[in-house]
Amino acid sequence: MSMPRILGGTALGLVGILSLAGCSGQAAAEPEKTTPAASTVTVEDNNGTQEIATPPASVVATDNRTFQTLSDWGIELSAAAVSLMDEGNPYTKDDTIVDLGTHNEPDLEAVVAVQPDLIINGQRFAQYHDDFTSLVPDATVLELDPREGEALDAELIRQTTVLGEIFGKQDEAQKLVDDFEAAIERAQKAYDDAESVMAVTTSGGEIGYIAPTVGRTLGPVFDIIGLTPALEVPEATDDHQGDDISVEAIAESNPDWIVVMDRDAVFAAETPDYVQAAEVLENSEALASVTAVKDDQIVYMPTDTYLNEGIQTYTTFFNDFADALEAAAK
């Protein structure tokens, strides 16, 4: 009579053992949760070697040349100079980003609250480098502004490549560089150096002269493409409104091409008395006989150029210039 009980007990024991074994097998199959090891990337900026933890947890951006790139790459910003962005940039619609204001009246202290570990600083905010290092000493203040004496095209490539390394966007950065270099090559190939070029900016209905090499925004284009200046003015500056020049001086130099930055175009919606660059140049009686005007050989930089002088802006401009040069050659 005891045998069945023993066998029953043994059977129950086996069931229990098998059940425990089954539970043990299930537990072993569950993957262990591990915390990814922190990594860093070492890059060179305008101030030397910078070691940055990746991915950066809190990012601040004040350099206009980087806004479009960061936005296109989907980089989240904690704070930025939102007031200096073109309204077409998605960051201007993101209420979670603390606006540091403009370089004229910046709210630098606001950066403390977002506890940044990376500040991408430069251009109009370059003057506040030391303020940032004082306010948030644990943050890396990265500056990739084009350096004086260095070729602008190489500097824009450097800036893009370094940002790609920091944010793990190397492929995207390379695509921007490839497109940029291809646009330059197109313009170089299409341009005939027997044709003279003048660069100007317009603002408030007035024309400003942009000097080859040293002039703001379009000056370096002369060196990049190898343009022949229609006019060279002694002691020209890099003023953002250009240097004073008379329409008579432009007419006398008779450029075959005029390249233009309309400084006010990006503010047109909020400027009731805005005068478009095309109206200033193409409707001028004094310029009517100028080859560039007469033959419709005026090329305008993108509308948002004044607030966006990054690699994409120049890529668009060089392609537009190449389009015009190629069309004129047919």
Rank of each mutant, 00 (worst) to 15 (best):
T102N: 10
A154P: 03
L84D: 01
S2K: 08
K175D: 15
I75C: 10
Q68D: 14
A265R: 15
I6C: 00
Q188V: 05
D94M: 06
D179K: 12
E248L: 09
V59Y: 04
P106E: 08
T92G: 03
A324I: 08
L227M: 14
R124A: 15
L176C: 09
D63W: 10
G310F: 10
E165H: 14
Q26K: 09
L84T: 00
G8M: 13
N308W: 04
S24K: 05
D130S: 13
V162H: 07
T271S: 15
I250V: 15
A230L: 06
R158K: 11
W257L: 06
A139D: 04
Y306K: 00
E51A: 15
E282P: 00
K189C: 01
S58I: 01
A328Q: 05
G310M: 14
A183F: 07
S253C: 11
R65T: 05
E206G: 00
P4M: 11
A187Q: 03
I6Y: 01
K33A: 14
T228P: 00
T315M: 10
D256Y: 14
L287Q: 01
V59N: 12
H129C: 00
L100K: 04
E172R: 13
A173L: 08
P255A: 10
E248F: 13
A268C: 08
E185T: 15
D63I: 01
L218Q: 08
M3A: 10
A277R: 01
L281A: 02
A38V: 11
D304K: 14
D256S: 15
E185Y: 05
D304L: 05
V280M: 01
G226V: 08
A327V: 09
Q115R: 08
D178W: 08
K169H: 15
V214L: 03
F167E: 06
D130M: 01
G168D: 13
I120W: 04
Q297N: 13
T35R: 04
D238C: 06
G242V: 12
L176H: 15
N104L: 10
G8S: 14
E143M: 06
R186A: 10
V280P: 02
S83R: 02
E252P: 07
